[in-house]
């Protein structure tokens, strides 16, 4: 688009008189400083996103480096130790990671089967009318702020779990409740993206299946779903990344204090929950605690970025086949 074809026709300076027609014999390229400026400005707008990424990498890198140069902190301990107790100088990230894995695990436990089922139902079974109602409803609900889901976890899911399993078993703060509600949060994400992938499968493939005498279920599960697999996988990975980075539900419902436990009914602080607690307290900017959240942030960034890149690979593969 940057070619000069449009420059061939000079601009009319005046609508009247024949002068501009005479001028039009001159087909020289002429400089257009205004247009150049506009293009430069627009490029800058595009480049802001690069600056943002560079900013994130720089900030996380610099502050993490600062953290790891503190006395008594080592990269090895960070990745191997199972104790996170800044007060005694123990910075092992595993308790936070296991808590994150647990909430994410519970979230996927809910969202994966339900989300896929909803997607298959909407794309292969539901009438056009039902689909037109349900899809926007799911999408709007996916837009509800996560802090509201956090409220829901504390005021609904936790009491529910406590009434089922007993108050002695289930703590007020626990990873199960946070994870289950997180599952509800990412369910629309999985179902919506997967439904898009399933709907993108051409009709002809379904017809081929029916023409061989397949039932609707056989067509949906054995032909359409495998055909949309890369698209569905992309949806699941995006949801996974979203659950790992999800903050407010974990901060409100999972517990405030790192704990190395695999009991889902005990409180345990996730990576994101820890970052929120440290930064909402009155802790000095120069403390090690403060630097530590950047180290955790770096880990989180690398994890989610990797998942997103992988997901985009799957999307690209899906597009290659069907678009």
């Amino acid at each position: 688009m940057t070619g000069g074809s449009e420059d061939l026709a000079p601009r009319a300076r005046s609508a009247t008189g024949g002068r501009f027609l005479q001028q039009s014999h001159d087909l020289r390229k002429r400089p257009r400083p205004g247009d150049m400026l506009v293009q430069g400005l627009l490029f800058f707008c595009g480049a802001v996103s690069i600056l943002t990424t560079l900013g994130i990498v720089y900030v996380l890198g610099r502050e993490s480096l600062l953290f790891f140069t503190h006395k008594g902190v080592s990269l090895l301990e960070f990745f191997t130790s199972t104790t996170w107790q800044p007060s005694i100088g123990k910075f092992g990230v595993w308790p936070l990671v296991t808590a994150t894995l647990m909430t994410t695990g519970f979230a996927m436990l809910i969202a994966l089967p339900l989300g896929l089922a909803v997607a298959v139902y909407l794309s292969e079974y539901a009438s056009a009318r039902a689909r037109n109602i349900l899809k926007p409803v799911l999408e709007i609900l996916a837009g509800i702020p996560t802090v509201v889901y956090g409220y829901f976890a504390l005021s609904f899911m936790t009491p529910l779990l406590r009434s089922i399993f007993g108050r002695d078993v289930v703590s007020i703060y626990n990873t199960a409740s946070a994870g289950l509600v997180m599952g509800i949060l990412i369910l629309p994400l999985i179902s919506s993206m997967s439904e898009d992938a399933l709907s993108a499968i051409p009709r002809s493939l379904r017809e081929a299946s029916y023409a061989l005498g397949a039932t609707r279920l056989e067509t949906a599960v054995q032909v359409v779903l495998p055909a949309a697999l890369s698209g569905v996988t992309a949806a699941v990975i995006v949801a996974l990344s979203r659950a790992i980075g999800e903050t407010m539900i974990a901060a409100l419902a999972a517990g405030a204090g790192p704990a190395f436990t695999i009991n889902p009914f005990r409180p345990a602080e996730t990576m994101t929950g820890h970052m929120v607690r440290i930064s909402s307290g009155d802790i000095s900017y120069d403390s090690m605690d403060y630097d530590s959240i950047f180290a955790i942030g770096s880990l989180l960034f690398v994890l989610t970025l990797t998942l997103n890149v992988v997901s985009r690979r799957f999307v690209a593969r899906f597009r290659e086949v069907y678009e």
């Binding site: 002809s204 493939l205 081929a208 023409a211 061989l212 005498g213 397949a214 054995q222 495998p226």
Partner: peptide, 30 residues
Amino acid sequence: VRRRIGMVFQRPNPFPKSIYENIAWGARIN
């Protein structure tokens, strides 16, 4: 009915599976 009356479409529409599976699938479900 469709098990007994097969169909071939205007545009080739093989399943995005292996050649082998394309043939075997119909037989298997039937």
